[in-house]
């Protein structure tokens, strides 16, 4: 699956480092395998386009838009989801 994402010049960035409104494609999920499955089942997979919608008022968690719906996850996990940002 990983090999299907084309390599480009910009290095992957953690989801949590994006500014609201930024879109990108997931290139790697570094969450330990045993905690990863629910995120995958919610549709956040390598190769999936994601938009960072906003951070919660107190800074955590983050809200993302994936596959046409809104999902929230903590910064702790968002740190471990790496994206290639569309230029």
């Amino acid at each position: 699956m990983k090999s299907t994402v084309p390599e480009s010049v910009t290095p992957p960035r953690p989801l949590s480092s994006l500014t609201p409104g930024t879109r990108g494609v997931v290139v790697e999920i570094r969450i330990p395998a045993e905690h990863r499955s629910r995120l995958l089942e919610m549709g956040v997979l390598v190769g999936t386009p994601i938009e960072l919608v906003r951070f919660a008022p107190l800074g955590d968690p983050v809200e993302i838009k994936v596959r046409g719906y809104h999902l929230s996850l903590r910064k702790h996990e968002a740190d471990l989801v790496l994206l290639r940002v569309n230029s």
Partner: peptide
Amino acid sequence: EPSPMILELPP
């Protein structure tokens, strides 16, 4: 250890 929080925000 803290477990991940994955929560849908429905319309």
